[in-house]
Design a binder for these strands. Structure first.
Lengths: 220, 220
DNA sequence: ATGCCTTTGTGAACGCGTGCACAAAGATGG
DNA sequence: CCATCTTTGTGCACGCGTTCACAAAGGCAT
């Protein structure tokens, strides 16, 4: 029976072994003292807890470059996700195959959602269409939305939204890059907080703020 | 002079106003008591600290769907990033314009990096090519890498790597979705830790682990 | 069966970030 | 010029997650 010790896993993952054991204990995963964890059983337990053993039908709305990239992304299937449909507003796209699936028109959105029991939707549309698509997804029964459009979505209570901003990661890199270069720190105490923040990815909506939205770089 | 109070900003962002003030104090940003923060000055200070006022030339390697999507992403320019070049290994792609830029062949990688003083590279290649591309980028002088390929990259000390796994966000949504549905909790105490973890995005390499890499869902 | 060795599971301490609460500072009006 | 009001900046305390350290437990060899 192949096993792993918490120490091995911790070293490989670069974390503390005690933390790892404590986390596992929350899962109810039981290892064997003096031996370690049964790899197969452990993988199964974690997979189940994370929902990897379930089948999650998802729809991708907006089949531009990004939508197509997502549709082709291999990582989904192995994690329990199944692309139920690709949806685009452009009639010219309808029927055209992308990643082996025919693109469906937005008109069919509601029917697709309900027919497949989809509860997770991915929005890869331009910013302008995102909120509208979001509203339709929610109305059709979707309760979790992954948003790639550069907009903050407003959703009713009970709906989860996660926003992926492709430029944020790049910005974090640039932030560190900046500190590497200028050792003559431009500001006193390094705001480690700034890099961490993220200010809560959860949608806190409240569209009112003093100025419209995220301010562009000021012209100095 | 347009100003904002920490309270206004905090409400808009959905965070505590004291925390916001404390964070600002690390930046050395001084507000005016009884009035608030000068919007213009504040924006400038934050932009500068975050590196938004600098010009960051970046190269994108691997111009498939994802690479093209990144090249077309509008959010980069406004955050100080400038796409210096798009690079692909396919000779057929060479010269073909994507997002207004001609695709360059991989052979030119080193020259492009040094000519433009590029210190940040984006990898959007298939998993198989990622490490190789990474090595060449690092050798050419790149010190920060944003990796979209589903592989853990090994890099020498001093090089920052951030990995973006497009399916992780989806997985987090599925995790919460699972708890929404099954109120009859399948496991005792909810491991809030599991959803948070991320286990440190920093590259901790150490390619040795008991089994190859991330285990696929076990066949139950 | 007994003793030793390994590794788990967890109680307790530590450290850190968040939030509270208030004194100091500046504006504003009389 | 003084009183009052608003809002900043921050010391302090609370709470939570991480880490330490160790007793308990199981395997294994003799």
């Amino acid at each position: 029976m192949p096993t792993v010790s918490s120490e091995e896993l911790a070293t490989a993952a670069g974390v503390n072994s005690a933390k790892l054991r404590k986390d596992f204990s929350y899962l109810g995963s039981y290892g064997t003292r003096g031996v370690g964890y049964d790899v197969e059983y452990l993988v199964y337990q974690i997979s189940r807890e994370l929902g990897l053993t379930q089948d999650w039908p998802v729809v991708i709305v907006g089949i531009g470059n990004l939508g197509a990239a997502l549709a082709n992304y291999g990582g989904f299937a192995s994690r329990g996700f199944r692309v139920a449909a690709l949806i685009d507003a452009d009639p010219a796209m309808a029927g055209k195959p992308v990643a082996g699936l025919p693109v469906r028109h937005t008109d069919e959105l509601e029917a697709i959602i309900s027919d497949n029991g989809v509860s997770i939707g991915v929005i890869a549309t331009p910013a302008g269409a995102a909120q509208q698509v979001c509203d339709r997804l929610v109305a059709a029964g979707v309760t979790s939305i992954l948003n790639f459009a550069p907009t903050v979505l407003s959703v009713p209570e009970g709906v989860d939204v996660r926003k992926v901003d492709l430029s944020i990661e790049l910005q974090i890199l640039a932030f560190h890059e900046q500190r590497k270069a200028g050792e003559d720190s431009p500001s006193p105490a390094a705001p480690a907080a700034a890099a961490r923040s993220g200010a809560g990815v959860r949608s806190s909506a409240s569209r009112k703020g003093p100025d419209g939205d995220v301010p562009a770089v000021m012209p100095a």
